[in-house]
Design a protein around this nucleic acid. Structure first.
Lengths: 146, 146
DNA sequence: TTTGGTGCAAAGCGTTTGCACCCGC
DNA sequence: GCGGGTGCAAACGCTTTGCACCAAA
């Protein structure tokens, strides 16, 4: 999924391509491999289109989430983080708690667990699976600080 | 893990057993099998000890979380939900999105995935795995409403 | 008596909303 | 020109905090 695919997807749903929206998409595209908070997206978007407002960020993130173009990730108690979906296949993420670097994981635990719930008391609709840790670079930086 | 174990655990860390704290623990114990929001815990605690205040709820939930006595669960964008940890073994949950009913799952996807990350770019520290759906009772209720 | 616990009210934070104006198409 | 998009400021919901008082141990 590249930038034009995303833009076409939005257009086809009747959304306009405003300068703010383009700037936001550019930022997300520039940080494909990292999760970003709304605040971070806001700051980086302003560097590209200065007039952008926070509420515009949130409104666009909502549109993108509904259009299934971005992932939204929550760690307990923290503000939501977002990243573009680059990959059509269902997948999960491993995320660096320091810098937000995010790597896709093709493995999905649901495949393994589905059988267990055949006769059980629940009908499944959603699931969450995320790994957290520190990436090589951040571990290196941490060690150097000592 | 029963109520007295929890109380002993807190006492051993120098915490006092106030009426409010006892009421909160009673509420959590009464709803072992459900996740509850702070608001719900607050309302139910007031039924047992009327003078209880919301801030007391939050302060105690924080203590209990740090003491590893409760699980805290977040769905995207929603307020945190809490439940007592009943079970010493590491486990995950399946949660009813309607009523909060929660069932333990012994399966942990980390066992399956560990090998994949042996030589990878991340050092793992945490993981989240939750299943969401609807429990039998809530599905039944929904069907009856139609 | 000591020290942690609490109620209260106010502030915090991330996020959402109402409204008038703006600008892609 | 129309209808969606935006900036602004205010409000929101959940959660945290400062402070004076309270009550377990």
């Amino acid at each position: 999924m590249n930038l034009n695919d995303v833009k076409d997807n939005l257009k086809s749903q009747g959304y306009k391509l405003t300068n703010q929206r383009k700037a936001i998409l550019d930022v997300l595209m520039d940080h494909k491999g990292h999760v970003l908070s709304a605040e971070e997206i806001y700051e980086k978007t302003k560097e590209r289109y200065a007039k952008t407002n926070v509420s515009t960020i949130y409104r666009n993130l909502e549109i993108l989430e509904n259009a299934n173009l971005i992932h939204r990730i929550n760690m307990n108690g923290e503000a939501s983080k977002y990243k573009l979906i680059c990959n059509d296949k269902h997948h999960h993420h491993i995320i660096c708690k320091e810098c937000g670097k995010s790597q896709s994981i093709d493995f999905c635990p649901l495949q393994d667990i589905h059988d267990e719930f055949k006769d059980e008391d629940f009908v499944l609709t959603d699931h969450r699976f995320e790994l957290y840790g520190y990436c090589k670079e951040c571990i290196k930086k941490k060690n150097e600080q000592v």
